[in-house]
Amino acid sequence: MTLSTPIHHAFERHGIPAPRVFGMIDDPLCIVMEMLPGRIDSATIADAAQQRKVREDFMAIIARVHALPINAFDAVRLPVPRTAEEIALNLYAPSQAIFAERIGGRPWPLMEFAWSWLTRNVPKDRDRLSFVNFDGGQFLFDDAGHVTGLIDFEVSSLGDPAAELSGMRLRDSTEKLGDLTALVRHYETLTGDTISRKLIEFHTAGFCGVNGFLMWPLMFDSAPEQDFVAYQHYCVATSRWMISAMAAHDDVLLEDPPGPTRDPLGFAQASRHLVRHVKAMPCGDAAADYQRDSVAAQALHLGRVNDYGQSVRAAHIADIESLTGETPADWEAAQAGLSRWIVEHGGEPGTDAALIRLFHHWLKRQSFLLEGCGQAAYLTEVDLQPILDD
């Protein structure tokens, strides 16, 4: 039985619209469930009033889910947090543990700082506990404007319900949910809860951090079937959003760095020739075409690294030297030195702001290197919708 199956059963028992589960298939392992009518992406609703109603009805269902007793999910066997810290970090801590194991001792100061920041900024006044779908904002609706059911519960946990509202910001980056500030205020009216902007920013940083914890190790040890550049886009974009959420939480003003300088390491034509060669290969089925396009995207990215990589690396090393006062011998020494500095000085006055700005600069440069590379290249232009205070 997968995690999702008892969640579906719990929803069915309590009248929460979701696909009913009829059984399991062992090989291949999959769930046999009801096919609900409807479609995703409420941005496709032409009528503005109907669009608003669908989104508000969805938030009303989420409010009902958050009001369910915790013991309704006993069969799911999710860990039950008790303290404010456990509630805030219940999804983030296991992800960080996976990262620590998979990164294998390699210094990766970006995510080391992320975990330090999260543990030091836990909302101490939040003790509300509910079932939370961190990958929130997913539902089906029909042409009549009725929400037919919630979907996709793989990233579920018990935690602060505000975390699910924060996760909707990521969903909104690809499937628009409208005015998120208005939806949060609607949720407050329905529940009586108070969701501050800082609370949203904390959990935005946390959920974006989950993506970083789970995906950055793939940049150092990937499987052959993985789309390397697509995962690199996800790593950079979600980490950039994480740092932006930290900045908003801490009232740190972010400024973009100057654009990298073109300084080719070798023959720039080599990458262009490889991209042209790959794209000229015969077409196959959809899977083969996807692999071909992925290889072309990787070749294009390597060409941009060849053209701009020296400038990007020099700028980041200079930023680290300016912060730590040490002159690293190379890239690896720079990462190790920054990791040590975070351990020794993390949390001191002014250090969070300095690190937030440093990582913002590095991630913007990495985003520049990924521009135009592959199907996920749209992420280089995407920022999360802000949640505004009244």
Rank of each mutant, 00 (worst) to 15 (best):
V155Y: 00
H273G: 00
D57T: 05
E112K: 04
F99V: 09
D307K: 11
G309W: 01
N71L: 05
E326W: 06
N133L: 00
R20L: 10
E86H: 06
Y92C: 12
T204Q: 13
H186V: 06
I16K: 01
A67E: 02
P264Q: 14
E175A: 12
M242Q: 11
E12S: 13
W341M: 00
L118D: 02
W331F: 14
V210C: 14
R126A: 05
I40Y: 08
I320R: 02
V236I: 15
S311A: 15
I103A: 03
G346H: 08
E85P: 00
H301P: 05
D152S: 05
A314T: 14
A60Q: 10
G346P: 07
P282D: 04
P19L: 04
P264I: 01
I16C: 02
L190D: 06
H277R: 14
L150G: 06
R52I: 04
L150F: 04
E154H: 10
S222Q: 09
G209I: 08
F153E: 06
R365Q: 07
Q138P: 01
A60G: 09
E225A: 13
R52L: 06
P349W: 08
F134E: 13
G38R: 02
P94Y: 00
P109Q: 09
A286L: 10
W331G: 09
E154N: 08
G206C: 07
T181A: 10
P328A: 11
P81F: 05
F202D: 01
L199W: 05
L68G: 13
I342P: 02
R240M: 04
A296C: 11
A315F: 03
E321Y: 08
P260V: 15
F228A: 13
D127K: 15
R106C: 00
V278Y: 07
S196E: 06
D390E: 15
L369R: 03
E12P: 00
D179S: 08
A230P: 01
Y231Q: 13
L190Q: 13
D250G: 12
S130H: 03
F99I: 09
I151Q: 05
S244R: 15
E85I: 00
A354G: 07
M111S: 12
R20I: 03
L265N: 02
V312E: 05
D152F: 12
A48Y: 04
F73T: 07
D383H: 05
A280P: 13
H9T: 14
P217V: 09
H301L: 10
N90H: 12
E12Y: 14
H345W: 10
S367C: 11
V210Q: 09
M281R: 11
S95W: 04
Q385D: 15
